[in-house]
Design a protein around this nucleic acid. Structure first.
Lengths: 352, 352
DNA sequence: TGTTAGCGCTCTATTGCGTTGAGCGCTAAA
DNA sequence: TTTAGCGCTCAACGCAATAGAGCGCTAACA
């Protein structure tokens, strides 16, 4: 988060609000004349100019060049987002509609999240994203080994979110069906309720304890251990990139490249998300504007509106919207909040 | 495929070859002077100019504007690819290296393909792609129902490629573990060796026959039937988009958009691939140049070099490279061929 | 003291024009 | 058939002039 916000007079706020609004809709630097005209202010352009000059001194606005109109800075957006934009409540009807289209045909947590990102992209005309609960931190409910060939077994892992994922792996030695069954039971006994990210570690510990008692079983488990690659489920759903490309700021090649890099560097994006949520685990929508706040110099013209969703009141993942800095924040913040809420309930319901 | 290729004299071929080569490396229209110079021809620029004019009349070259150098047309590339480029055999050493890095740590068909696309992107400095065998056409080896909650079961489906995929689904009525087990056996009996794309259909047919004999089981199966969404595995691996963006032709916004649309419209790309392979199921690499041949007007500056890979001599999928029209075709064709070969063997080995 | 009108200034964007140079086509000679 | 030479064409570049948006400043006004 940036340093504290400056104190603004009501008039200054009014002007800032106007500039942000106009810039959001036109994507062009905003002059004093239009501010007066479009907002029917009882002021002359000259006065507004003075105010805008003050706002520029305070670092809330800036000029692309001398004698151009003003454009909000990161700080300007920040002020707007925090003080001026009242999270425009989404109408109940709209919310109902979201829920209705949303709850239809949910077959699991992953579906919920994919749909969430899809929906956000659709409703915002920007790019929508959804981060799945960290799979390495989720807990193993059940493991099931199923022989599917002479030397191949499929391992089905089910976690506490009800997510099932499977790996198929090749054994270095063939095993009898019976052996596999016993191994299966052993693994379930040992690994249940362990974090999926730590399965191999846990297994190693337990095996050592068993080495004496149940030599053969332990050895077989040992064998499997080396070959159990963690299956990865999709961690970040990201949709609607073409929407983003339609925004005028991405018509320049340099900025367009930023969008591309988003797609390619999902991992970095995920990390930023995680960090942001950790820093700020309070409720409500989170807004990160431009490269400074996103912590990635290459993402200068991009902003993120995100909101964590919760299971049992614990934040476990994030959904959000990616767009140009110039975004209708108030609308989108409420959209994201509402959606996060729906997602929370959908997942809780799935688990219940 | 375009209409027949024209007949060229040896000299004309020589000039065409030179122009294509130079254009591939420089990305600039090619003048007669440089052709003579860089290829040490015993000819004057004037003569070459005449030849180039002839080639232009035949539709193999074109000028961006009067008095600019020449650029190959689609037909020009076509001629080059088909008659002039000798598929530059890849050295055995290089091939060995590919195989070595490649065969390490393969845990399934999907891995092989992901790696293939990765490798192609890496080696070509373009974008690599790999199409997975059509999952709807693959055949069910085994289905396994595993209860993971009061009303939830995970269904693990294993196909003839050894690919395991799982869906978790919610039952409209709770079932006893015993019931599930019987249902499981029933499903295996009925669905084994059926194409995955037709599972629901097959199930419906079989159920009708059983309705009398085994009323309850059939009803349960019926219940499941409605709720069995086909889990989809990744069908198209596509990597190295940033490489593509580095090419000079994609520095313009319009062309850059083409690259983006590639990412977003994977499905259309898949279809083009399928169609191309069906039209031309002979061996060897397949080259599609620009919008005409790719069948998508929005992909004018993009070309595709692809090669099918085979299992039991049947083509089941395609791998390839996406790049600008201006690509080092001969090198890439051999790269793709070699890789397709390696993939074929890797998969066959996995299945054996 | 805050507001406003007016003027001049600054900077961008656009247009037009002349220059340069690459590269062609054509013709006439070898 | 090939080549040298010449003139033509066209994109690219730079330069200058113009127009217009929008600012800052000052001086007058409430």
């Amino acid at each position: 988060m940036p340093e504290g916000l400056p104190q603004l007079s009501p008039r200054e706020e009014q002007v800032l609000d106007a500039v942000v609004h106009l810039y959001i809709t036109t994507a062009e630097p905003v002059g004093a004349r239009v501010v007066v005209k479009r907002f029917n202010l009882e002021l002359s352009p000259a006065t507004v100019r003075n105010v805008m000059a003050d706002l520029e001194d305070m670092g809330l606005l800036t000029q692309p060049h001398t004698s151009a109109g003003r454009v909000p800075t990161t700080l300007g957006y920040r002020y707007y987002v925090q003080k001026l934009s009242k999270v425009q409540e989404i109408g109940l009807a709209e919310r109902r509609k979201l829920e209705r289209e949303y709850f239809s045909r949910l077959s699991g947590v992953d579906d919920v999240l994919r749909q969430a990102s899809h929906l956000l992209a659709l409703a915002s005309h920007q790019a929508g994203l959804a981060e799945a609960p960290d799979e390495r931190a989720s807990v193993l409910r059940r493991i099931e080994l199923i022989p599917i060939g002479e030397r191949r077994v499929a391992a089905l892992l089910v976690d506490n979110y009800g997510r099932a994922r499977s790996v198929s792996l090749e054994l270095s030695q063939p095993m009898t069906p019976d052996g596999i069954q016993r191994l299966n039971a052993f693994l379930n006994e040992q690994l249940a309720d362990q974090p999926i990210g730590r399965l191999t570690d846990v297994l190693r510990e337990r095996i050592l304890a068993y080495l004496e008692e149940q030599r053969q079983l332990a050895q077989q488990a040992m064998m499997l251990l080396g070959e159990l690659p963690l299956p990865s489920t999709e961690r970040l759903y990201l949709e609607g990139m073409p929407n983003l490309m339609k925004q005028p700021e991405f018509h320049s090649v340099d900025n367009a490249r930023q969008v591309i890099s988003l797609v390619e560097e999902r991992d970095r994006l995920l990390e930023v998300l995680r960090k942001a949520v950790r820093n700020d685990p309070d409720l409500g929508a989170l807004v990160l504007i431009g490269s400074e706040e996103l912590g990635d110099t290459s993402l200068d013209s991009i902003s993120l509106v995100a909101s964590p969703y919760r299971v049992n009141n614990e934040p476990v993942g994030v959904i959000g919207i990616l767009g140009p800095r110039r975004m209708p924040y108030s609308r989108l913040m409420s959209l994201v909040n509402t959606t996060a809420d729906i997602v929370s309930r959908a997942i809780t319901r799935l688990l219940g």
